[in-house]
Design a protein around this nucleic acid. Structure first.
Length: 502
DNA sequence: CACCCTTTGAAGACC
DNA sequence: GGTCTTCAAAGGGTG
């Protein structure tokens, strides 16, 4: 289990002890197991890398280099080297080896170890935790069961297996040091060179016997994949004291948690959250002090309820509603209309809580600037195509970082907005900015079965949607085949099979 | 000015 | 349970 070098209380030292592979044999086994699948994936991925991209990124290229080498031994060695490098680089000692072979993504520090013999938190641990998980100091309490439920179905991509690779600190990929989750926050180099993804990084197994994980972790296994899952943040929250002053000094990997340079980067909602949001989520004293120290008083309501604390979150977007005008209109409305208007108004007052970003979105956010800089492209659609391909070209370990980060985002989002559902943002529910979805149009135009020709500069072959027949079947059902479009109808299929056999 | 485009992933809806 | 749809970000393009 990852942990801080807290046991001895000597925070940043003892670099040479950091990479202790007590479970090396076991780990090697697991790596070997995964290596073939990893090779396959790497092959598939490398085949996805188009020429234009590789040309564009001759400097980087290194995507191929970054991919895990086929040999597990060299992979392990490389990992070890990277770990050592990383450890030397990372303020000495915060980053340690992946102690849990079975915990591919374990990045939560061992929170039993950061404490000094006298019971207090070691300075390093305290600083680290304050930096990385300021908002996780939430007394999750009632949330835990719910979260556990969600955890069980939270994504754990089957292709992401094996020990978490710490190669990235050793990579000269600046972008990884620029990671920000915040909206509209300029990408900047991390001042302390603390990897922004540090929550994803494992620590020394000093206090862990690989085969004997803590009980609360043992039980945390993805029921679908069987892959052990890292503990969710609420597990660590009780050990996560905050003191105002230290947090703001270092940009948070989840950038929105900490206002950048004192700017209210994210709009503070004055309307609070809608009623269904429970008040069970509370902020402990240290959290409150953090908030009150970092935000004006009017932003920090006196009472409990994290969601009413006015924590600036990028996910919150207040709709631009002219409340005054609606007030003046109310008088002229009859009672029913009045009520409707009132409801509508209240609806409009609700802040728009955005979906947490998924792994790819996080990746895009980080890499977009880099791609824009490398290419002359400015069109997001084209850039996103490139990013999509790069995403596939990423090694499993690199993708795992983003999956893990996204998972933490979701957990955090869930803690901040326990009652929120993605459904809330569906058109019709959200009264703010609404888009006319293209899908609606496509359904009528029947272009859902078209051949898809992506950006020609990406030199991709056209993709014929072979799964098309399933669409109408899913949409209308088997008993309404008369509603199926031509290509979806069984007759059409038999016709195609006949003609193809000719 | 609102929406489209384009990507992947998560979650909800639908059959 | 499988499939589809919507929405997350981004910003130039389009009507």
């Amino acid at each position: 289990m990852p942990q801080l070098n807290g046991g001895g209380g000597d925070d940043l030292g003892a670099n040479d002890e950091m990479i202790s592979f007590k479970d090396e044999g076991e780990q090697e086994e697991k790596i070997s197991e995964n290596s073939s699948a990893e090779r396959d994936l790497a092959d598939v991925k490398s085949s996805l890398v188009n020429e234009s991209e590789t040309n564009q990124n001759s400097s980087s290229d290194s995507e191929a280099e970054r991919r895990p080498p086929p040999r597990s031994e060299s992979f392990r060695d490389k990992t070890r080297e990277s770990l050592e490098e990383a450890a030397k680089r990372q303020d000495g000692g915060l980053f340690k080896s992946p102690p849990y072979p079975g915990y591919p993504f374990i990045m939560i520090p061992d929170l039993t170890s950061p404490y000094l013999p006298n019971g207090s938190l070691s300075p390093t641990a305290r600083t680290y935790l304050q930096m990385k998980w300021p908002l996780l100091d939430v007394q999750a309490g009632s949330l835990q069961s719910r979260q556990a439920l969600k955890d069980a179905r939270s994504p754990s991509p089957a292709h992401i297996v094996g020990p978490f690779c710490l190669e990235f600190p050793g990579q000269a990929d600046l972008s990884l040091h620029q990671f920000h989750l915040s909206n509209k926050v300029p990408v900047v180099q991390h001042p302390h060179h603390v990897h922004p993804l540090t929550p994803l990084i494992t620590y020394s197994n000093e206090h862990f016997t690989p085969g004997n994980p803590p009980p609360h972790l043992q039980a945390d296994v993805d029921p679908k994949t069987g892959i052990p899952r890292p503990p969710h943040p609420s597990d660590i929250s009780p050990y996560y004291p905050l003191s105002p002053g230290t947090v703001g000094q270092i940009p948070h990997p989840l950038g929105w948690l900490v206002p950048q340079q004192g700017q209210p980067v994210y709009p503070i909602t004055t309307g609070g959250f809608r009623h269904p949001y429970p008040t069970a989520l509370t902020v402990n004293a240290s959290m409150s002090s953090l908030l009150s120290s970092r935000f004006p008083h009017h932003m920090v309501p006196p009472h409990h309820s994290l969601h009413t604390t006015g924590i600036p979150h990028p996910a919150i977007v207040t709709s631009n509603v002219k409340q005054e005008s609606s007030h003046s209109d109310i008088g002229s409305l009859n009672s029913s209309k009045h009520q409707d208007a009132k409801k509508e108004e209240e609806k409009k007052k609700q802040p728009h809580i955005k979906k947490p970003l998924n792994a790819f979105m996080l990746y895009m956010k980080e890499m977009r600037a880099k791609v824009v800089a490398e290419c002359t492209l400015k069109e997001s659609a084209a850039i996103n195509q490139i990013l999509g391909r790069r995403w596939h070209a990423l090694s499993r370990e690199e993708q795992a970082k983003y999956y893990e980060l996204a998972r933490k985002e979701r957990q955090l989002h869930m803690q901040l907005y326990p009652g929120w559902s993605a459904r809330d943002n569906y058109a019709g529910n959200y009264q703010g900015k609404k888009k006319k979805r293209k899908r609606e149009k496509q359904a009528g135009e029947g272009n859902e079965h078209r051949e898809y020709f992506p950006n020609p500069c990406l030199s991709l072959p056209p993709i014929t949607d072979l799964s098309a027949p399933k669409k109408c079947r899913a949409r209308f059902g088997l008993d309404q085949q008369n509603n199926w479009c031509g290509p979806c109808s069984p007759n059409f299929l038999s016709f195609c099979s006949n003609t193809s056999s000719l």
